[in-house]
Design a protein around this nucleic acid. Structure first.
Lengths: 231, 231
DNA sequence: TCAAAAGTGTTCAATTTACACCCATGG
DNA sequence: CCATGGGTGTAAATTGAACACTTTTGA
């Protein structure tokens, strides 16, 4: 019997986000070959034999960022399957969003020269390859929405972090200001959210701040209140 | 150049849920041919030429339920791509969860005879074809999680519904009891959640209840508090 | 008249918010 | 000593939970 249904190849695209200097930034790559040669795109790659698509996403994330074991927050955004979305043929893409710590170690090898961090607003100004603008929009919305109900904000921080560094993640991603005192109480009271390491640091200036690491919890029992964006 | 990357076919599987007589039920089909002949499975089908996978899911939903235009809540659950998940070959599946109103019109034509509604607990007791048990678990968790942050509960109701019918959706899906008075206030005060139609009904017994329809809002500004399930 | 469900009022507890204030460091 | 952020105290405001109570129907 002849095959009636399309055969497609699968790719995983990974929207890699970080928080730097009070800005939400995304890692993009400049394409070195057609199609869309010279344009910015979300890093991604084909699913290889023996892999599932999540493993492809993990592999891509590692190739781009040199993050070793610590793939914590890699969340599915959607699946993009419009016919004609890729001029090379029938290519369907699963999109993930990853949240990585501040000084995001740009990978040394490969086409690292072609990768760059861009603030979200800038990235969304110009055109992107394929349907990647839409994917980026969806990914950012997903990330924003996840912050208040999961512990994913921690993924933006170093392994050891202070409460105010965590607060700045929320402030940056949501574009709001949060009360430092109230935030401190809220976060430290939710069991399993953050754990004291015992250490302290003055890297943020002022009085030494306690250091924390991620707790065991993935989903918050009560959500972190997200203020309305005024004006 | 020879192709190194797997070619796959895409299917959309749709977990169709409804609330009936205080139970959360799922629509399953008994397979009429190998593989897994005779076993229960989540309805689904191949993506056809010219379609994207979301359209495939919509089509499947319509074929199974005879719901016409009103495809409101069809949410992506995940993408299932393990090699070997389907003995016929490389078949990747996007899974969606759909929430449909109570008397769920079983489609007359086609293989409708093979479809059946099962309470979630029963459906998860026995084996299901492929990796459909996992998909069903993921879909139910997704639906539970969505209730408190979106207006998706309305999708379980008729076009016109009473507040207590809506309350029973929450109670059933979450497996809790909610205070009728408090729930009524909460829901009617959130702007854009429900809209009065002006009518009333006594179909639930007792004093006539006002009729409502869905408002314009998709996501709730503040979540509907979800009580802990007490042993 | 009774039962059942709708919807409102009322009270108390819990949570959130705003902001004052002291603490511990670097410069 | 001063500036800077860390963290706690506290009171007001808001929200949620519990439940009594009135309303309006069908039986």
């Amino acid at each position: 019997m002849r095959e009636m249904f399309p055969l497609v190849q699968l790719t995983a695209d990974v929207v890699i986000l970080t928080v730097r200097e009070e800005r939400l930034e995304v890692l993009l790559v400049r394409r070195g070959k057609p199609p869309f040669e010279g344009m910015l795109a979300i890093p991604g790659g084909y699913m290889e034999p023996g892999e599932n698509l999540w493993q492809t996403a993990v592999r891509e994330l590692r190739e781009e960022t040199a993050l070793d074991g610590m793939v914590q927050h890699l969340e599915l955004v959607g699946i993009y399957t419009d016919p004609g979305r890729d001029p090379r043929g029938q290519i369907a893409s699963g999109a993930w969003v990853a949240m990585v710590p501040d000084p995001p170690v740009a990978k040394a090898g490969g086409d690292a020269a072609a990768t760059q961090w861009l603030p979200i607003e800038e990235a969304l100004e110009g055109p992107l390859a394929f349907d990647h603008k839409r994917i980026l929009q969806d990914a950012v919305e997903k990330a924003r929405r996840m912050l208040d109900q999961s512990t994913s904000a921690i993924a933006f921080c170093q392994e050891e972090f202070t409460i105010s560094e965590l607060r700045r993640v929320y402030e940056t991603v949501w574009g709001v200001k949060l009360d430092p005192g109230n935030f401190h109480r809220k976060v430290t009271r939710i069991e399993g959210f953050v754990e004291r390491t015992g250490g302290a640091t003055t890297r943020d200036g002022g009085r030494p701040a306690g250091l924390y690491r991620a707790g065991a919890r993935k989903w918050l029992p009560s959500s972190i209140p997200r203020p309305e964006v005024s004006a």
